[in-house]
């Protein structure tokens, strides 16, 4: 019995030392907190998830800026993009750690508000990146953010809509793959897209459903859409992952090249698909620039400089 306990203890202890040790030997890694040196402030970047290339780009940009400005950077994220509770826990734990500034890409626009208020209470400035925190909820809770850095998703949606209209000559049946409902980023993209196509009476959105930002769901949902709406000639997906999933569905339906597919985020894989011709266009979001701008702004804040409420990051259509 006793040996049992001590074995448990030593195994857990050993495992921990090992993990901590791994981190220490990787000073370039984002997770280099254990090696934090005194004097350098620590800036934290919390993204939605680290298994989406978009956020990996953001991480790269942030790391580059952190090196440039000589600050420590911690990057963390939940395992699942939609896990708002887990993101909240991560931020709470970073507040406990007394990081100097927080850059956050909220998993939920409204769900992020309580933890912003917590950061406010201990005086940690919050920089919101990419996805806006819900304005009304923030005001209601008395929380405030230092700045928002991001592209105007609404404009991106409009760009995509105009492109589709041009490509189809102003006539055709459209399909839309939405992100998670109630999500600011996706809603803005969708709004922009809808307004752009509304100008063309010949264009009709015949089906629009969420695929929750995920690639496999993009595949499944679009496959079903093709079954029920065989007349669809163009698809707008609110992110590239869903678009990439949909491309596979198009290929397996034997319709490759017959449907205009527009994504969002300009991920490397999406760019490759455009070169190959399986995808028509994507809206470039420059995640890496968002990451670096976020860290840059955080550093400025810590130095007591004034910064703008909103720093737009350019957006462009890649064909």
């Amino acid at each position: 019995m006793k040996t049992h306990r001590f074995l448990t203890l030593s195994l857990i202890t050993g495992g921990f030392a090992l993990i901590a040790g791994c981190n220490r030997t990787e000073p370039t890694s984002a997770a280099s907190v254990a090696g934090a040196t005194a004097g350098k402030p620590t800036v934290a970047l919390v993204v939605k998830t680290l298994n989406n290339p978009f956020f990996l780009d953001m991480q790269k940009g942030a790391e580059e800026a952190a090196r440039r400005f000589g600050v420590n950077l911690v990057v963390q994220a939940a395992d699942r993009e939609i896990d708002v509770e887990r993101q909240m826990q991560i931020i709470e734990n970073l507040i406990e750690r007394k990081v100097a500034a927080l850059c956050i890409t909220p998993s939920g626009s409204r769900e992020i508000v309580p933890v912003i208020v917590k950061a406010n209470q201990v005086g940690i400035p919050v920089v919101i990146v990419d996805t806006r925190a819900d304005e009304k909820a923030l005001v209601a809770a008395g929380g405030k953010i230092a700045t928002f850095i991001g592209s105007d998703n609404y404009d991106g949606g409009k760009l995509a809509g105009a492109f589709v209209a041009e490509k189809l000559g102003g006539k055709g049946h459209l399909a839309v793959l939405e992100g998670i409902p109630g999500h600011e980023t996706g809603d803005a993209r969708l709004r922009g897209f809808r307004e752009a196509v509304a100008k063309f009476p010949g264009l009709k959105i015949v089906v629009s459903q969420p695929a929750n930002w995920e690639r496999d769901q993009g595949f499944n949902v679009f496959q079903n859409m093709l079954q029920s709406n065989p007349t669809v000639t163009a698809l707008f997906a609110c992110n590239d992952l869903m678009a990439l999933g949909a491309i596979e569905a198009i290929a397996s339906a034997g319709k490759a090249g017959k449907i205009v597919v527009v994504g969002f985020d300009a991920q490397p894989e999406a760019r490759a698909a455009i070169t190959k011709g399986t995808m028509s266009a994507t809206v470039a979001q420059f995640a890496s620039r968002m990451g670096s701008t976020a860290v840059e702004n955080a550093v400025k804040l810590l130095a007591g400089e004034k910064i703008a409420d909103f720093t737009p990051v350019a957006i462009e259509l890649i064909k």
Partner: peptide, 28 residues
């Protein structure tokens, strides 16, 4: 989870560790 966050361990390693603890506990 809290400790791994405080130490700045990546979420991928966290999953591995938690899985390992479950297996270890039952194994012992």
């Amino acid at each position: 989870r809290n400790g791994l966050n405080l130490l700045g361990v990546s979420s991928f390693i966290q999953q591995v560790v938690i899985g390992a603890v479950i297996i270890l506990a039952v194994l012992l």
